[in-house]
Design a protein around this nucleic acid. Structure first.
Lengths: 185, 185
DNA sequence: CCCAAGTGAGACAGACCTGTCCTATTCTTG
DNA sequence: CAAGAATAGGACAGGTCTGTCTCACTTGGG
């Protein structure tokens, strides 16, 4: 069933452009018109509809894309190495790095089915519990909270930089420092 | 010019109900239809239009309402008492208490003019700088960042509680602990 | 060079939301 | 109780967005 479709590299690039544009535009304004997304992607509205027939299809495609990025970030963070806090720190760093994409979950479309309790989330809560056990993570802050808490930092990191005269890099640093200090024992 | 209009208590109550409903509905879905807001307020759409002729009027009324609540929270936090961190802690506590209202700024309408750099924000950044001076607040985290960072915590506190089996009170506690630990020197 | 796949541009009907208006009904207040 | 104020409910025109369709144009691979 899940045959890997062989797509021309050109089409694949266009597909990616549309997804990226959708994340950007819809994160800023979840109710944005499809034409606005098409314009941001540098593509005609009819082309967008050819790739994603309707808004729901586009929305769930974006959801899947972001989910995949999340899984990749978790893989890169190597959650099973070092203390719980060390792994938590690596994870936060990865997510901050890709905050433009993960902004989707902070301020994207809302009514797409939330895939609560997926494997990735379970890995994160397990990681936090490991940190509880090895004494590196504050026992008063429970696993679900810390897992959610990461998104807070991302929210600030995405929405702050514009006004303040500070580079995205610096903002990322402060964001990471804030998240880790909060979680530490 | 700014005459205090004398309104009947009934009308005032309805007005408040509409504002509260608008905050709730629009925070969950910024593009929600006005009819949805009216329904949430237990009022006919025509009545809503009588109070607030159009969407922009409603939106800015909500903005003003939230801004007033913010000013009140800041007043209650007595920012000039104790160390910078102590005052910061009180402020976070007040904002967490009113998180349902302040959710507006995290995920409300977007295009209403952001009143950047109002008096309240200046008071907060001044407070953080005092904390830097008296050694109670982490000097590596600058004032704008910490001021913004509070809203992150609110975001999580508003959006987490539903799934997890935890009382709003407990969530608020964890949220506060997280914010304060992050800010502390 | 040619052709087929892909794209841009626009027309179009339907759906939804908005803001205005009107009327019958309900609630308040004197 | 009675007059006046306020509300619910619905009709309505105008607007925007959507999803579908068609057709002319570009482009890249054979």
């Amino acid at each position: 069933m899940t045959v890997e479709e062989q797509k021309s590299p050109t089409k694949e690039r266009t597909r990616q452009a549309i997804l990226r544009a959708a994340i950007g535009v819809l994160s800023a304004n979840p109710g944005a018109a499809l034409g606005e997304i098409a314009e941001a992607a540098g593509v005609a509205r009819s082309t967008l509809h050819r790739y994603y027939p309707d808004r729901a299809t586009l929305s769930s495609a974006v959801g899947a894309f972001v989910q995949a990025e999340y899984a990749a970030a978790i893989r890169r963070a190597r959650l099973d190495e070092g203390t719980g806090l060390a792994a938590y720190t690596r994870l936060c760093g990865e997510l901050i790095e890709g905050r433009d994409v993960f902004a989707w979950w902070v301020r994207g479309e809302i009514d797409d089915e939330v895939p609560d309790e997926n494997d990735e989330d379970r890995m994160v809560t397990a990681l936090v519990r490991r940190g509880h056990a090895d004494g590196s993570i504050d026992p008063l802050l429970d696993a679900e909270w810390l897992a959610t808490h990461i998104w807070c930092g991302l929210f600030a990191a995405v929405h702050l930089p514009e006004p303040a005269g500070r580079s995205p890099r610096e903002t990322g640093e402060m964001c990471l420092r804030t998240l880790v200090k909060a979680a530490a024992a």
